[in-house]
């Protein structure tokens, strides 16, 4: 009996330590290690500790879906570019919304030399993806200020929330853009653009008004459509930048200085 107990105990230890990654309990089990948790907040702290000048250069990618090898190429391209201050992923890091795909996607981004931020995409929300996103990255809407520019990340995946009238959260956005002495301009980042049918049509005007309200939005950046375009969908002349999906083996970098911005396309 005692031998049996000892064997069972040993098996238990074996399972709980060495083989945690070997055994799968469910495609929806979320059991992230510390390095895969609280990514956005930890990178905000990392970024704020970085030395900065008055020029910010950001590398954008997104819609990485199942383009894992391409994501690795993107990461090594960015690591070779010393001008990049940080990276923004514009959503769809997990094609099926699976926790395992979150882990895979993040495993490449963890190799970036610079801080990185991920905004929530519609694919990321399938199944229990919303929970996986919150565990790995944090709140679905978040912001930070870096060298007097406010970066606002907002969930615009209205369809995933059955067009319930709360996504995007207009009140939150308006509140974020309220002028303060801490920032001069804002950059708003989201996955689904307001011109898309996945965006709640009943909130389109309110979203547009909110962006224009305080006349401080320098530009907005989004993904979802995979191609690159700079356009002005609304009469208020706020530029929208749609950035390349990773599969094009191109990324857009955006340089911000003196409240002006410049978009570049870099092949890799």
């Amino acid at each position: 009996m005692r031998t049996t107990l000892k064997i069972l105990l040993l098996i238990g230890i074996f399972i709980n330590t060495s083989c945690e990654d070997l055994f799968d309990y469910s495609p929806y089990a979320i059991d992230f290690s510390d390095e895969n948790r609280d990514i956005n907040q930890r990178n905000i702290e990392r970024l704020l500790n970085c030395k900065n000048d008055d020029t910010i250069t950001i590398a954008f990618t997104g819609d990485t879906h199942r383009f894992f090898d391409e994501t690795e190429l993107f990461v090594s391209a960015v690591n070779k570019n010393p001008a990049i201050d940080f990276v923004i992923h514009v959503g769809d890091i997990a094609d099926f919304g699976l926790p395992k795909q979150y882990l895979w996607g993040n495993s490449y981004l963890l190799k970036l030399n610079v801080p990185y931020f991920v905004v929530i995409g519609n694919h990321d929300l399938v199944g229990n993806g919303s929970q996986a996103y919150q565990e790995m990255f944090g709140d679905l809407n978040y912001s930070f200020i870096y060298t007097s520019i406010k970066f606002v990340y907002i969930n615009t995946n209205s369809r995933e929330f059955k067009f319930n009238g709360n996504v995007p959260d207009i009140k939150w956005l308006d509140n974020q853009l309220q002028p303060s002495i801490d920032f001069t301009k804002a950059v708003v980042i989201f996955h689904v653009p307001p011109t898309d049918s996945d965006f709640d049509a009943s909130l389109k005007e309110a979203f547009q008004n909110s962006l224009a309200h305080y006349n401080n939005v320098l530009l907005t950046v989004h993904g979802h459509l995979h191609h690159h375009e700079i356009y002005k969908p609304f009469a208020d002349s706020i530029p929208f930048v749609n950035v390349f999906g990773v599969e094009h083996l191109k990324y857009n970098s955006i340089k911000i200085s003196n409240n002006q911005f410049e978009v570049e396309t870099i092949e890799f």
């Binding site: 083989c19 990654d21 070997l22 055994f23 799968d24 199942r66 894992f68 090898d69 690795e72 094609d95 099926f96 699976l98 395992k100 795909q101 895979w104 490449y108």
Partner: peptide, 18 residues
């Protein structure tokens, strides 16, 4: 489907042992 076309995804990552 996730592993397909991705040499950088380790094979044992897609295996479920039991």
């Amino acid at each position: 489907a996730s592993k397909f076309g991705n040499a950088t995804i380790p094979l044992n990552d897609i295996i479920e042992f039991g």
